[in-house]
Design a binder for these strands. Structure first.
Length: 570
RNA sequence: GUUUCCGUAGCUCAGUAGGAUAGAGCGACCGCCUCCUAAGCGGUAGGUCGGCAGUUCGAUUCUGCCCGGGAACACCA
């Protein structure tokens, strides 16, 4: 699409002795459009050109050759050069681009030929899928969609927590009291009860903890009883998780969890050992990271010679590098794990992998979901299960539909889209690093800056288009009809879509898109309120309908990137 | 204690890799449905951008210190 900044930079570059690229970098969008569509602050050049900013600005203004088809006027305010674009050009540019790209508008091919692995969701087997896992699932899925939209080949991996000492604990608990619980009937809840109970027992009796650790060791060594139990727990849990994934619409390209790497860890240990990076400490094998500025060493093998989370992550890095040839490998987890990934990424540099891979390792941390009373913990038994939240969201959405639009067809389906949309949007609307205190009414709020608000605005655009039957041809649209302040404001927002997606990818921050969609929806909503769209004046009507069409397209497309579905009616 | 993240309106948060009068939503108060869905729109009230220095023509944004809060810190993941 036409790059306005570049066009302006070209013109300015002809008048002053600064290169175009640098100028382009300085050009900004004023916060108030009364100060122009773009603005060039001349302060930055004052030193370089040894001139007062205002003089520079005036100088540029006096000498610049402006093409009236591109720039309407230029003002000098303080040290700023405020540039007002030709409004017809803005309208024309956006209209033509949308007409050409339709639902592909905003896509790009910057990712063509590049592979990105995204490791997300990763719930722990035999533990409830709680609200804390929602964030990883939802943020990961959004990043997946965003990168795909930018042309990358993306591999979504659900790195299941299906291995480790916790299974040693479960096995021990099952051995001790298995007959007291009906695992087949309600797997996760019953297993959780066992898990809580065994943890209590471990606290009281050190030998029980020792037995648990040994169970995991046995599991790694292939002990038939342990393996059989582990398999059973895993299967039952996955079935339960699938219910949540179905509600959220989550899909993964790979379900290779931690256990998948059980036979791939010896290579990690051997490589580290042969490079002389492995040292013994307190009976365990570790990699010392003092030199890297990390005071805690990375444990590769425990003193009972079983492996750790880190070892499995290292094996996964080797495997993913070979299998997917990744340019980036992104880990979406809570910020509790920053140290862990810092360690793992440092140790990965000792695995003899190409720099391409070790440089592509990225941890994307997010804040925690807390209860008003503090942290959630499976062991404390105070978790809020995600399935309950999603079902509550759907049920509340249904109540509102019943109240606002009782005539609606397929209420169930719409309630699901709206309820789930609210939950997803709530999680993606703020910077991911922020902690979130769980509150039913906040999470399931359907008013203001929420998922349903976006959906509602989409539904409005859709109703209009449905009523009118067909979208007018771009060629028949009178550009002047859309050059007023409000319309230009909306068009400029639409123009930014691709830029916003790139930013979101660059920072691995889906909330940038959420904010953008809220802005767009608000702008359109104001317009909708002040103007009738289906009017008698044919020219005006066509232009407004096309604007409505464009807004709807972006809202739908943007919501989809976030993993939110848009119903046609609600 | 060490490391790290956070601190903007009563509450929840935006603030575009330093810029022109700091913006939304919720809550409060006041308006708007004979008109394309009021899950909406408009308005009023509400701010020493945690504090102090420094860098700069210019700091909510960068640096340092301090205060307040969260998190991590070897056999959990």
């Amino acid at each position: 699409m036409t790059d306005f900044k570049k066009m302006i930079a070209e013109m300015i570059a002809k008048v002053i002795n600064i290169n175009e690229e640098e100028i382009k970098e300085y050009i900004e969008i004023p916060k108030d459009s009364s100060m122009g569509d773009y603005s060039f602050p001349c302060f930055k050049l004052a030193k370089e050109l040894r001139k007062a900013p205002v003089a520079i600005a005036n100088d540029i203004k006096d000498n610049i050759q402006i093409d009236k088809n591109i720039i309407e006027k230029i003002d000098v305010v303080n040290g700023y050069l405020n540039i007002y674009l030709n409004r017809k050009l803005i309208v024309k540019t956006v209209l033509e681009e949308i007409d050409k790209e339709k639902e592909n508008y905003g896509k790009s091919n910057i990712g063509t030929g590049k592979n990105i692995v995204i490791d997300y969701s990763a719930p722990n087997i035999a533990k409830p899928f709680h609200i804390g896992h929602l964030r990883s699932t939802v943020i990961g899925a959004a990043l997946y969609n965003i990168y795909k939209f930018l042309g990358y080949n993306v591999i979504g991996v659900n790195h299941l927590g299906d291995y480790g000492t916790q299974f040693g604990k479960l096995i021990e608990g099952y051995k001790l009291w298995g007959t007291e619980y009906d695992i087949e009937k309600d797997p996760i809840n019953e297993l959780t009860k066992i898990y809580i109970r065994i943890n209590e027992a471990c606290k009281e009796d050190e030998t029980i903890l020792e037995n648990c650790r040994n169970n995991f060791k046995k599991l790694e060594d292939g002990d038939p009883y342990c393996v059989e139990l582990w398999k059973k727990f895993r299967e039952l849990s996955l079935k339960e998780f699938q219910k949540v994934y179905d509600l959220l619409g989550s899909k993964f390209d790979s379900w290779n969890g931690e256990s998948f790497y059980s036979d791939k860890m010896p290579e990690v240990i051997e490589t580290l050992s042969s490079k002389g990076k492995l040292t013994e400490s307190q009976g365990a094998k570790i990699v010392d990271l003092e030199e890297q500025g990390i005071t805690t060493p990375c444990i590769i093998e425990k003193s009972n010679s079983s492996t750790t989370y880190a070892t499995r992550d290292l094996a996964a890095i080797m495997y993913r590098a070979r299998t997917y040839d990744f340019d980036k490998c992104i880990y979406v987890t809570s910020y509790e794990q920053v140290l862990h990934f810092k360690q793992v990424f440092e140790v990965a540099k000792f695995l003899g992998l190409d720099e391409k891979y070790t440089k592509g390792l990225i941890h994307v941390p997010f804040g925690m979901v807390l209860l008003p009373t503090g942290k959630m913990s499976t062991r404390e038994g105070n978790v809020i299960k995600l399935e309950d939240i999603l079902n509550e969201a759907i049920s509340r959405a249904k109540d509102i539909i019943e109240q606002k639009n009782p005539e609606l067809d397929n209420k169930e389906e719409v309630a699901k889209k709206v309820g789930i949309g609210a939950v997803i949007f709530n999680d993606l609307s703020n910077n991911r690093i922020k902690d979130e205190v769980f509150d039913w009414d906040t999470m399931l709020n359907f008013q203001g800056e929420t998922g349903p608000y976006i959906q509602y605005m989409y539904v409005r655009t859709n109703s209009i288009l449905e009523k009118i039957g067909q979208i007018p041809d771009v060629k028949d649209i009178e550009l002047e009809e859309l050059t007023n302040d409000t319309c230009i404001d909306i068009l400029k927002q639409i123009y930014l879509f691709n830029d916003i997606i790139m930013q979101a990818a660059d920072k691995n921050e889906p909330s940038i898109i959420s904010r953008y969609l809220i802005d767009l929806a608000q702008k359109f909503s104001s317009f909708y309120n002040d103007n009738k769209i289906i009017v008698d004046d044919e020219k005006q009507k066509n232009a407004r309908i096309y604007l409505t069409y464009m807004v709807g397209l972006i809202l739908k497309s943007g919501a989809k990137l976030l993993g939110i579905e848009t119903p046609n009616k609600m």
